[in-house]
Nucleic acid binder design. Structure first.
Length: 498
RNA sequence: GCGCCGCUAGCUCAACUGGCAGAGCAACUGACUCUUAAUCAGUAGGUUCAAGGUUCGAUUCCUUGGCGGCGUACCA
C-alpha cells in the first residue's frame, strides 16, 4: 500500500533523483549540507551589480535552481533566493573539475551555493559566472512545469510550499500581508496602544455570536472553547487600567467556509479608554489612510471591477436610514411580525429566522450590504443585535455601534462599549432567553466579566477589524484562501469511515 | 447542507456520437563553450480519483462515494 503512495508521488523522476543521491554520496558529496555562508543576497548582488560586475570581486550566493539551459560544456540557469532571481553561467573551463562533475547531477529544484563573479552577457543580462558550485540540499520531487506553473488550486492550497516556490505573486501577497500587519501594529503603538496576549483556550466563549470549537483539558477535566473573540478579556484589561490595548487574535468559529470565511482567521481588536464610537470612526479612517499611504499610493483602490475611494471622511449612514433607502419604508417602529411580512414580500427566505433582530439582520444583509461598495460606516444598530454595545445617547432602542463596509465586505465592528454592569447583566439574560427560544448562537453569561464591570470600566471605544479581509482588499484577492497561507481543507484522501 | 462543473503522465492540457489514451514542458540518452519557453536527434513515462453497473468494448454512459472549484445557505 505504501508502495502505491510512493509511486504516485513524483513517479519515475523521483526514483531517478534518489539514485542521484547515491551517486553523489559515492563522489563524497553530502547532498544535505549543514550550513553555508553567503556574502550577498541575490537582491543585493543585483542592486550592486554595476560595481560588482566591473570589479571582479567574488560573490557567494545560495538559493534554489529554477531553470537550467545546458549547451554541452557550458550552461546557463537561474537561481532564486528570498530576495531575487539571478542568472548564472557555468562553463567547463571556468569551474573546478569537482564542481563541473557535480553540476551534471544537479536538477531544477535543487538548493545550491555558488561562488563566482558578476558580469554582463552580450544581451546585457547581469549574470554570475560560477567558479565553484556546492550542493546544499537535493530536491527529489520535480517542480511543476516552468511555463504554466502550478495552476491546480487544490495543490496550491494543500502544498503551499510548492505554490510559494513557483508563483512569485503568491509570495508577494504574503510578504504584503506581513507588512500590512506590521504597519497596523506600528500605527497602534504610535497611538499609545499596548500589545497584549489573552487566552485562546477559554472556559466561557464570548465577544461574538458564533458556534465555538470545543476541546478538553485532561488535568482539569473541563471542556474549554477556542476563542471566537478576545473582546471580553481586552475589556477586563481596560478595567485593570491599561487604557489602550490591542491584540492580533487568531479566532476560531465553527461555521461554514466560503470565499470570505475560514474556520480560523485573524482579528485585530483594540480598545481605548475615554473614546466613544465617533472617535473610533475617525481612528479607522486614519488607520486606512496610513494603509493607503503605504500600500496603495493614494486613496484610489481597485478591487475587481470596483474603483474604491478610501479618502476620508467616509460616508456615515445609520442602520435604519440604510434600510429606509433600500426599502422606501421606515422599519424602525416595525415589530417582528411586520418585518417578517416585509422580508417575505421581498422574496427573502425567512426559515429559521427569529425575533425582531433576526429579521432586521436578514433584511440588512440581503438588501443593504451588497450595495455598500464605497467605504461606509453603518451606524446605530438596533439594541437586539448588539449585547455588548452601549445604549445610544439619543435613542434607547439603538446602540452606539458602527461597522465599516468596503466592497460589500463587513471589515470591522466597533462600539461605545457597554460599561454599565446592571445593563450588561440584563443583556446577557436577554440572550439566555433567546437561547431558550432556539437561537443557538448567543452569549452564555460570563459572570466574571460582569463582575469586572462592577469594579468600574471607564467609557471605552472598541474596534474589531478582520485582518484577512483587509489583506484581501489591499491585494485585490477575491478569496480568503489566497491570503491565508494554509487554509482549512478536507483531509487528503477522504475521511476515515467508522 | 444544497446545486452546477471538474478530477487523464511529475506539471499544463487534448482525446468528436462508446472503438488501440496523446501533445507540450519536465525526465532519460546523445550532439552543442553567451543561452534565456535554448536548439537538434532519439528514449521512456498511465490503476484515466475509487468502487460497482450497462456494453462485444467505458477516460467517455449510469449509480454510489472521495476531493476540489464556483454559486447558494449558514456565519449579527
Amino acid at each position: 500500500m505504501s508502495e502505491k503512495i510512493q509511486k504516485s508521488e513524483g513517479g519515475r523522476e523521483r526514483e531517478q533523483r534518489i539514485e542521484k543521491l547515491e551517486q553523489l554520496r559515492g563522489m563524497g558529496v553530502n547532498p544535505f549540507r549543514y550550513s553555508f555562508e553567503r556574502t550577498h543576497m541575490l537582491g543585493e548582488a543585483i542592486q550592486n551589480g554595476g560595481e560588482l560586475a566591473g570589479s571582479g570581486a567574488e560573490v557567494v550566493c545560495a538559493g534554489r535552481i529554477m531553470s537550467i539551459r545546458k549547451h554541452g560544456k557550458t550552461a546557463f540557469g537561474n537561481i532564486k533566493d528570498s530576495t531575487a532571481s539571478l542568472q548564472f553561467y557555468v562553463r567547463k573551463d571556468g569551474v573546478d573539475e569537482e564542481s563541473f562533475d557535480l553540476f551534471k547531477l544537479i536538477d531544477v529544484g535543487d538548493i545550491v551555493g555558488i561562488y563566482g563573479t558578476l558580469f554582463r552577457t552580450k544581451t546585457d543580462e547581469l549574470t554570475v559566472k560560477v567558479t565553484r558550485l556546492e550542493l546544499l540540499s537535493k530536491a527529489i520531487l520535480p517542480l511543476p512545469e516552468k511555463w504554466h506553473g502550478l495552476q491546480d488550486k487544490e495543490i496550491r492550497y494543500r502544498q503551499r510550499y510548492v505554490d510559494l516556490i513557483v508563483n512569485d505573486d503568491v509570495m508577494k501577497i504574503f510578504r504584503l500581508r506581513s507588512a500590512i500587519v506590521e504597519t497596523i501594529r506600528r500605527f497602534l503603538q504610535e497611538h499609545g496602544f499596548l500589545e497584549v496576549e489573552t487566552p485562546i483556550l477559554q472556559p466561557i466563549y464570548g465577544g461574538a455570536l458564533a458556534r465555538p470549537f470545543v476541546t478538553h483539558h485532561n488535568t482539569l477535566d473541563i471542556d474549554l472553547y477556542l476563542r471566537i473573540a478576545d473582546e471580553l478579556y481586552l475589556k477586563r484589561l481596560i478595567v485593570g487600567g491599561m487604557e489602550r490595548v490591542f491584540e492580533f487574535s487568531k479566532d476560531f468559529r465553527n461555521e461554514g467556509m466560503d470565499r470570505s470565511h475560514n474556520p480560523e482567521f485573524t482579528m485585530l481588536e483594540c480598545y481605548a479608554a475615554y473614546w466613544d464610537y465617533t472617535r473610533m470612526m475617525e481612528f479607522v479612517e486614519q488607520l486606512f489612510a496610513r494603509l493607503c499611504e503605504e500600500f496603495v499610493g493614494g486613496f484610489e483602490l481597485k478591487f475587481g471591477e470596483h474603483e474604491i475611494d478610501l479618502k476620508p471622511p467616509w460616508r456615515r449612514l445609520s442602520f435604519f436610514d440604510a434600510l429606509g433607502e433600500a426599502t422606501d419604508e421606515d422599519l424602525k417602529e416595525m415589530d417582528a411580525e411586520t418585518l417578517k411580512e416585509l422580508a417575505k414580500k421581498r422574496g427573502l427566505d425567512v426559515d429559521g429566522v427569529t425575533g425582531r433582530g433576526g429579521f432586521l439582520d436578514l433584511l440588512f444583509s440581503e438588501l443593504v450590504e451588497p450595495g455598500l461598495i464605497q467605504p461606509t460606516f453603518i451606524t446605530d444598530y438596533p439594541v437586539e443585535l448588539s449585547p455588548l454595545a452601549k445604549i445610544h445617547r439619543g435613542d434607547a432602542s439603538l446602540v452606539e455601534r458602527f461597522e465599516p463596509y468596503i466592497c460589500g465586505f463587513e471589515i470591522g465592528n466597533a462600539f461605545s462599549e457597554l460599561n454599565d454592569p446592571i445593563d450588561q447583566r440584563e443583556r446577557f439574560e436577554q440572550q439566555s432567553r433567546m437561547r431558550a427560544e432556539g437561537a443557538d448562537e448567543v452569549h452564555p453569561i460570563d459572570e466574571d466579566y460582569v463582575r469586572a464591570l462592577e469594579y468600574g470600566m471607564p467609557p471605552t471605544g472598541g474596534l474589531g477589524v478582520g485582518i484577512d479581509r483587509v489583506v484581501m482588499l489591499l491585494t485585490d484577492s477575491h478569496s480568503i484562501r489566497d491570503v491565508i497561507l494554509f487554509p482549512q481543507m478536507r483531509p487528503e484522501g477522504g475521511r476515515e469511515k467508522d
